[in-house]
Amino acid sequence: MAELLIVDDESDIREFSRNFFKKRKIEVSVASGGRQALDLIAAENPALILLDVRMEEITGIEVLRELRKSNPAVKVIMVSGVEDEETIKEANALGVIGYIHKPFILEELEKIVLAQLNNCHA
């Protein structure tokens, strides 16, 4: 079972964040789009999901809506650069635990992820 799922349509983001968390012995799976993400969530039931908002195929918010139908509890952190107030409001309404604005550095992400995963394990 993967602990962390990273959903992003940028391959560099997927590649380097996976490298980074691997070195910390955190199981990471990645998805390049919303459909793949929903499949992976169903299959692997990750403890934490990092979900990019703006993606080509379907948006992060659409993925979140879909996800909440079957899985209201899974922890989701939205990752976004330029989204407006409405998107943030909707994300909060759909019960995300956080909303991080791009760009940010891996160390920050590490703190947040570790805190959430430890929380889980505790």
Binding site: E10, D12, I13, F16, S17, N19, F20, G81, V82, K102, P103, F104, I105, L106, E107
Partner: peptide
Amino acid sequence: INNRFHALGFIAGD
């Protein structure tokens, strides 16, 4: 542009 910066940040971070 933001995505470029973001990716750069991740690459450098790793």
